[in-house]
């Protein structure tokens, strides 16, 4: 089956992204297709490469990035939500006059249309959040 995944909560504060990760990983291992993972609301915080958890804890950002590397996953961070919360890639830094970027290279920043498209193209949209 072809799935789209939406994640509405930030990392560590909330288990939503852990559940989404485990669901996505298992679905891929079972041969299903993940059309896209879309990060919205505080979920955009899952994409910062500056994340540094204690060494004995899971690294949520790298875990997503490793999965993306292995399965060529499309990890998309919503641009509008990202701008509010200080998630920046090179293009956004340039456009908004910021002196730094923090997006992990395995993630990309794009518009809400990517969420709608994912919902249209997939057989199931699975939303993780409260």
């Amino acid at each position: 089956m072809k799935f789209a995944i939406q994640i509405n909560e930030g990392p560590y504060q909330h288990q939503a992204t852990d559940s989404a990760y485990l669901f996505t990983k298992t679905a891929l291992e079972k041969g299903h297709e993940i059309f896209r993972v879309f990060f919205y609301h505080d979920g955009v915080g899952n994409g910062t490469r500056l994340t540094t958890p204690p060494q004995d804890d899971r690294h949520i950002v790298n875990r997503w990035a490793d999965l993306a590397e292995k399965y060529d996953l499309d990890l998309v961070v919503c641009v509008a939500a990202a701008q509010r919360r200080g998630m920046v890639d090179a293009g956004e830094a340039e456009r908004n006059g910021k002196d730094a970027t923090n997006i992990h290279p395995k993630f990309r920043i794009s518009g809400l249309g990517q969420l709608i498209e994912a919902a249209v193209q997939s057989e199931r949209l699975v939303v993780f959040g409260d």
Binding site: Y40, H41, A80, L112, G113, I116, V120
Partner: peptide, 19 residues
């Protein structure tokens, strides 16, 4: 919380998709 406002943003963008 911001859920309501950001939900409305999805609705407005989604309206362009003819669903």
């Amino acid at each position: 919380t911001i859920y309501a406002w950001e939900s409305l943003e999805v609705v407005l963008i989604g309206a362009a998709f003819d669903q």
